[in-house]
């Protein structure tokens, strides 16, 4: 088991954002979390990092209880997040952004990993010394994914990676997710509004509503579930 959340509750100020989440991710799986805006998808992702800290429940990652670990030590255990809205460092160069990705990883791997990332995302190579803020949205998303991968994580969290991107880049993002999983065995937890795409690449999926998991199953099962179709797929996706 890579990740196991049991009975996780979390609050954002007075908002009870997560209400007893039970969720698991197995090694080598792509798991997706779908749900409407404000359902608590992003909160679930960042609660793994203690932001917000869960008020009750337990998070086990790779056999270790990380529920109370300080935020900055979580990634050291092997979890990397590609945050919603990319949140690359706009006033740093692409190279510096990638350097920021290796807070705990073995620094001697840096050159090798840099080459790997530039092979995976060719647009980054020619622009190493360019400010990241000058990249297009899609390019920034590639950089955000590359930054997360620089730490060689065991679990990759992707929060709305296709949001606001041109169709070309949306396709590219889902290709990369599949490629990382298939070719590198990367375990991925994916949050998406684009339920149609997400369910197609996922092995398993959870549906989140008002901070609760209301449905789970394989990607195929949910794709053909009439309730899911009505709520998240037909006309709802973009």
């Amino acid at each position: 088991m890579m990740l196991q959340m049991t009975g996780v509750h979390a609050h954002y100020g007075h908002v009870h954002a997560l209400r007893g989440i039970d969720l698991s991710v197995q090694v080598g799986e792509v798991v997706t979390l779908i749900g409407a805006n404000g359902a608590g998808k992003s909160t679930l992702m960042t609660s793994l990092f203690g932001a917000p800290r869960c008020s009750s429940g337990q998070i086990i990652f790779d056999g270790e209880d990380i529920t109370r670990l300080p935020t900055h030590q979580i990634s050291h255990r092997g979890i990397a997040l590609v945050p919603e809205g990319r949140r690359i460092y706009p006033r740093m160069t692409i190279l510096e952004n990638l350097q920021m990705g290796v807070s705990y990883a073995d620094p001697s791997n840096f050159e090798v990993d840099l080459k790997r990332m530039e092979a995976l995302f060719p647009i980054l190579e020619s622009r190493r010394h360019q400010a990241a803020g000058t990249l297009s949205g899609g390019e920034q998303q590639m950089l955000a994914i590359a930054r997360a991968l620089m730490s060689r994580p065991k679990l990759l969290l992707l929060d709305e990676p296709s949001l606001g991107l041109a169709p070309l880049y949306i396709r590219k993002v889902f290709e990369i997710i599949q490629e990382l999983n298939r070719d590198y065995g990367m375990t991925i937890l994916l949050v998406e509004q684009n339920a149609n795409h997400a369910l197609k690449v996922a092995h398993r999926a959870y549906v989140l509503q008002h901070g609760e998991i209301v449905l789970s199953g394989t990607g195929q099962e949910l794709l053909s579930d009439p309730a899911v179709r009505a709520a998240y797929l037909d006309g709802g996706s973009h």
Partner: peptide
Amino acid sequence: RACEQDRLVTAFLG
């Protein structure tokens, strides 16, 4: 400089 631009993400990065 990273903290200046995004403190939360910098913490997430370790």
